[in-house]
């Protein structure tokens, strides 16, 4: 089952966590990292808990699904409460700082960041929260170089939204201090 880095991005249907995972997968392909992206959602497309998954490796990947994520992004309380319980040992949990962290999760490597607030106030559009998150995830884990990430994002985001999404990516990256990035950097095996 080899070296797998398993990531789960979770939020509410409509927040764009699937697109966020696709952007990261695009950057992985461009960077020569083996990646499998998949998603899971209930019959209700909007409003329900939605999750997207990525598996990264420097080797070959077969099984596409995430069973025990090494990284979790939770943008809503419901998604944190649901997926916070299924983590690998030492998993990193990035949450929006508006969420209440349950007691049972207090031992995890938590990274609360103002993702939704940054999208709403600094970027100016709440709907860019998924792209802010992509910028923050990449900066925190040190996965891909910024050029690969930006190109990946531009291939998948709607025409006309380039400028606002560029600033969303940058705003997300700016949420991660160099100290934080140094402490959480991952090496994909």
């Amino acid at each position: 089952m080899g070296n797998r880095y398993e990531m789960r991005l979770a939020g509410s249907g409509g927040q764009g966590v699937i697109l966020a995972s696709v952007i990261l997968a695009e950057a992985a392909v461009d960077s020569g990292v083996t990646v499998i992206q998949s998603q899971s959602y209930g019959p209700e497309a909007r409003g329900g808990v939605c999750r997207a998954e990525l598996v990264l490796s420097r080797g070959t990947l077969w099984f596409p699904k995430v069973t025990r994520p090494d990284f979790l992004l939770a943008l809503t309380q419901a998604s944190l409460d649901k997926y916070g319980r299924e983590l690998a040992e030492g998993a990193i949990v990035m949450v929006d700082d508006s969420l209440t962290v349950p007691e049972w999760l207090e031992g995890a490597r938590l990274v609360p960041l103002p993702i939704l607030g940054t999208a709403r106030d600094a970027v100016g559009k709440l709907f860019t929260a998924n792209v802010v998150a992509v910028g923050a995830i990449n900066a925190l884990l040190g996965l891909f170089d910024e050029k690969a990430l930006l190109e990946g994002a531009m291939r998948r985001l709607p025409a006309g939204s380039e400028e606002i999404n560029k600033s969303a990516l940058a705003a997300g990256a700016a949420l991660v201090s160099p100290e934080l990035a140094a402490a959480f950097a991952q090496k994909i095996g």
């Binding site: 997968a25 083996t34 990646v35 499998i36 992206q37 998949s38 596409p64």
Partner: peptide
């Protein structure tokens, strides 16, 4: 669904 909804390079 496994293959249909999976993205790979």
């Amino acid at each position: 669904e496994i293959v249909g909804h999976m993205r790979e390079g």
